[in-house]
Amino acid sequence: MRQHVRSLRFARGEKSQADLAARVGVSRQTIVAIEKGDYSPSVKLALLLARALNTTVEKLFELEARDHA
């Protein structure tokens, strides 16, 4: 799964990882893990991230060819 959290974070006013983490109620390490592709967030967290970054989940996360069943 490809994610665009980091790029959108900078595109939306250069929020720091800590700021974004505080907005969505997780630790900074979780934001780090999501941006590194080490962790796939739950639907709820994905929706919260999308709202915090003023975008949609589809624009934040997208499936790659290898993800298709």
Binding site: G25, V26, S27, Q29, T30, P41, L45
Partner: peptide
């Protein structure tokens, strides 16, 4: 619950 997020 506030002390651990879903990844933790």
């Amino acid at each position: 619950p506030a002390l651990a997020d879903e990844r933790e």
